[in-house]
Deep mutational scan, measured.
Amino acid sequence: TTYKLIANGKTLKGETTTEAVDAETAERVFKEYAKKNGVDGEWTYDDATKTFTVTE
């Protein structure tokens, strides 16, 4: 399944996707990606669109 991340960070803005077996796995991947890019904010997830959003 393809999951999408929308990053609304102070230093990183944009979108990326990952293939994962479930939302929990995708969330781990995206949180690691955000951490590597210095983004720390509020996370939301929309199951209907398989989209995570992080906003600083």
Rank of each mutant, 00 (worst) to 15 (best):
T1S: 10
T1M: 11
T1H: 13
T2V: 14
Y3F: 12
Y3H: 02
Y3M: 01
Y3P: 01
Y3L: 01
Y3Q: 01
K4H: 13
K4G: 03
K4W: 11
K4L: 08
K4P: 01
L5V: 03
L5N: 01
L5M: 07
L5H: 01
L5Q: 01
L5I: 03
I6M: 07
I6K: 07
I6R: 06
I6V: 11
I6Q: 06
I6E: 04
I6S: 04
A7R: 04
A7I: 15
A7L: 15
A7K: 04
A7Y: 15
N8Q: 10
N8K: 13
N8V: 14
N8S: 09
N8G: 05
N8F: 13
N8P: 05
G9A: 13
G9V: 13
G9P: 04
G9Y: 06
G9T: 15
G9E: 03
G9C: 15
G9M: 12
K10D: 10
K10F: 12
K10I: 15
K10T: 14
K10A: 12
K10P: 15
T11H: 14
T11R: 04
T11E: 11
T11N: 14
L12I: 09
L12A: 06
L12V: 09
K13V: 11
K13W: 13
K13R: 12
K13I: 13
G14V: 15
G14F: 15
G14H: 14
G14S: 11
E15L: 09
E15K: 06
E15R: 05
T16Q: 09
T16F: 15
T16Y: 15
T16N: 05
T17L: 09
T17C: 14
T17A: 07
T17V: 09
T17H: 11
T18C: 15
T18Y: 13
T18A: 08
T18N: 03
T18W: 07
T18H: 07
T18K: 03
E19D: 11
E19N: 13
A20C: 10
A20K: 02
V21D: 12
V21W: 12
D22M: 03
D22W: 03
D22H: 03
D22L: 04
D22S: 08
A23K: 15
A23N: 07
A23M: 13
A23R: 15
E24R: 09
E24L: 11
E24P: 10
E24H: 11
E24Q: 11
E24K: 11
T25D: 08
T25C: 06
T25G: 07
A26I: 02
A26T: 00
A26F: 01
A26Q: 01
A26K: 00
A26E: 00
E27T: 04
E27F: 15
E27G: 08
E27P: 00
E27W: 14
E27R: 09
R28D: 05
R28N: 08
R28E: 07
R28T: 08
R28I: 10
R28F: 08
R28L: 10
R28G: 06
V29R: 09
V29T: 10
V29W: 15
V29C: 08
F30S: 00
F30Q: 00
F30E: 00
F30D: 00
F30R: 00
F30G: 00
K31L: 06
K31T: 04
K31D: 02
K31Y: 06
K31A: 05
K31H: 08
E32N: 08
E32V: 07
E32C: 07
E32R: 05
E32G: 05
E32F: 05
E32P: 01
Y33R: 03
Y33C: 05
Y33Q: 03
Y33L: 09
Y33P: 00
Y33K: 03
Y33I: 09
A34L: 10
A34R: 01
A34T: 07
A34V: 09
A34K: 01
K35A: 12
K35V: 09
K35I: 12
K36T: 11
K36V: 12
K36I: 11
K36Q: 12
K36F: 09
K36C: 09
N37E: 07
N37S: 07
N37R: 08
N37C: 09
N37H: 15
N37W: 13
N37M: 13
G38A: 05
G38D: 06
G38T: 04
G38Y: 06
V39Q: 05
V39N: 03
V39I: 14
V39Y: 11
D40C: 13
D40N: 13
D40A: 11
D40Q: 12
D40M: 11
D40F: 14
G41N: 02
G41L: 03
G41M: 03
E42H: 13
E42Q: 13
E42W: 13
E42M: 12
W43A: 00
W43V: 02
W43S: 00
W43H: 00
W43Y: 02
T44P: 00
T44Y: 10
T44F: 12
T44W: 08
T44N: 09
T44C: 11
Y45K: 00
Y45H: 01
D46H: 06
D46G: 01
D47A: 15
D47N: 08
D47P: 13
D47V: 09
A48I: 12
A48G: 08
A48Q: 11
A48C: 10
T49S: 10
T49G: 04
T49N: 07
K50I: 02
K50C: 07
K50E: 03
K50M: 07
K50S: 05
K50F: 09
T51R: 03
T51L: 04
T51P: 00
F52A: 00
F52P: 00
F52C: 01
F52M: 01
F52E: 00
T53L: 06
T53C: 08
T53P: 00
T53F: 10
T53G: 03
V54C: 07
V54L: 12
V54Q: 02
V54K: 01
V54F: 13
V54G: 00
V54E: 01
V54H: 02
T55S: 09
T55D: 07
T55A: 06
T55Q: 09
E56N: 05
E56Y: 08
E56K: 04
E56G: 05
E56I: 08
